[in-house]
Write a protein that binds this DNA or RNA. Structure first.
Lengths: 145, 145
DNA sequence: AGTGATATTGAAATTCATTTTCATTGTCAA
DNA sequence: TTGACAATGAAAATGAATTTCAATATCACT
């Protein structure tokens, strides 16, 4: 399997773009961090290493990361886009605590199959889906009781 | 079953709010329209009947409609909140054409059950969920071929 | 009806994430 | 080198949604 960096470089090449210093720094920072984060969070991390990189460039590069398949962008209904690693990572959906915001990754083969079937029943070619379950996590429901 | 208007009036009463002229107009306009719409769309419809109602009031009332259970708010990844009737309407998720934006309502008991089970497996008390399937609709895939 | 406490409203200003503009700088092939 | 174009930072712009604030409206209670 190609490395994530390799994939990104090829993506740039295929689109007539080059791997600039800024993009390299941003991608590295992106790859170093697992989990979910916002563009702002990535920007502030990048800023520590390279204070000269502007946030517009972080936003622009994040978009490239998504297009290249390295990142996945989604939002959990909080008005902010969250990003996470995509390349080499299994697909999953999210279970979010409505109270504390804790996020758990979930997958269910049965659901995935039914989603495909549902799309097909309607004549659609399924390209992607988004599923978020909201609930109260054990910690919060315990605390409330 | 109580009428939607009744539910809204009770909701207002329970929260020490009153049914003002503006709220009445907005709720009626809301109830007259099936399907999905944005706050802006509702505002422009309301404006025709009552040009003196401000958009802030539409936004505020829409929020009350959601809280009272009359409306459901969700977004299909386009950066705008969509609203639809909720009270007296069966739960459903959406299948959206990534090309033309056509929206189809879908439901699947198997998925609903698995979602509840998934939440439970993680100790969560499921409160709500959001599922959107993106694909290419028959018309668009035919046109593209 | 009158009164005061409080809720509501419209208009305009504000917020906040994200995008765009634009003038400058970097890149690279010929 | 030169020219064509890509990339960048800073600041301005965008756009949905929210908040502010001064001006009403509303309601419970005399």
């Amino acid at each position: 399997m190609k490395s994530a960096r390799q994939v990104f470089i090829e993506f740039l090449g295929d689109n007539g773009m080059s791997l600039t210093h800024q993009r390299r720094v941003i991608v590295e920072s992106f790859l170093e961090n697992e989990g979910h984060f916002t563009a702002e969070q990535l920007y502030s991390r990048v800023s520590k290493q390279a204070p000269d990189i502007g946030q517009a460039t972080v936003y622009r590069t994040l978009k490239l990361l998504v297009e290249s398949g390295l990142a996945d962008a989604f939002d959990l209904g909080e008005g902010v886009t969250l990003y996470e690693h995509h390349y080499g990572h299994a697909h999953h959906d999210h279970l979010v605590c409505a109270q504390c915001g804790r996020k758990v990754e979930i997958v269910d083969e049965t659901i995935e199959r039914r989603q495909a079937a549902l799309a097909e029943e309607n004549g659609f070619t399924l390209t992607r889906h988004r599923m978020v379950l909201f609930g109260i996590c054990p910690a919060c429901s315990g605390a409330a009781a």
